[in-house]
């Protein structure tokens, strides 16, 4: 892997920040330059959350721009669709097959759109039931590490470097479940 533009999207509270930190840490351990753009503030309030990770020999901007993402890592289907314009030609989407209805849908004002079908028509999509795998791993909040496992399999980076990054970023008491979640994602 020489350069990588990744967009990580989800709903506030799903753990996108941790995923972007682990990926950033992987880059650091590979002695690459890396920038991670995070979203703080209102992110806990259930809104759309977008973080960017850019890896290369020299990275200036922390922002992944439209049509320039190699990968989109989506924690929720609607957010995957919303992020699709970031994807560059031949880019890939890894999506957790979970639907979280926004308020306009729960109140009946709008319908939850067709997501997976639309995405698959337009891009290379890997769909994973990460919530089920996270539960298998013993912590349903480990959806993020399941997705990182699936992502790791696609990138040509030594698995041990990922494991090291997870150990560096995940608090001790959640580590075991997250390591298991990573394995399940990698094997999926």
């Amino acid at each position: 892997m020489d350069n990588l533009n990744a967009v990580i999207v989800g709903v506030g509270g799903q753990g996108t920040l941790l995923a972007s930190r682990v990926l950033g840490r992987v880059a650091l351990n590979l002695k690459k330059d890396v920038k991670v753009s995070e979203v703080h503030g209102m992110s806990q309030r259930g809104g759309s959350v977008t973080t960017y990770v850019r890896i290369g020999e020299k990275v200036y901007s922390p922002v992944v721009e439209q049509r320039s993402a190699d990968y989109i890592l989506a924690f929720e289907e609607l957010e995957a669709l919303r992020a699709a314009p970031y994807l560059k030609e031949n880019g890939e989407i890894i999506v957790n097959t979970q639907k979280i209805a926004p308020l306009s849908v729960t109140t009946g004002a709008q319908e939850y759109p067709k997501t997976l079908e639309t995405l698959k028509e337009n891009a290379d999509v890997t769909a994973i039931d990460a919530l089920t795998l996270a539960r298998q791993a013993g912590n349903e909040r480990a959806v993020n590490t399941v997705l990182l496992g699936a992502f790791a399999k696609k990138l040509e980076i030594d698995e041990d470097i990922w494991r090291e990054a997870i150990r560096e970023c995940v608090p001790e008491k959640y580590l075991k479940a997250n390591e298991k979640a990573f394995d399940l994602g990698y094997a999926s």
């Binding site: 809104g47 901007s61 320039s68 314009p85 308020l103 849908v105 319908e111 759109p113």
Partner: peptide
């Protein structure tokens, strides 16, 4: 960068990140 490349170098900006019709997800 995309906007700057378009404004100062004439490279077409691929457009804004809009996905019309998709329900918005503001914080609640």
């Amino acid at each position: 960068a995309g906007k700057i490349a378009e404004l100062f170098d004439g490279k077409p900006d691929p457009g804004v990140w809009e996905t019309p019709g998709i329900p918005a997800r503001p914080p609640v």
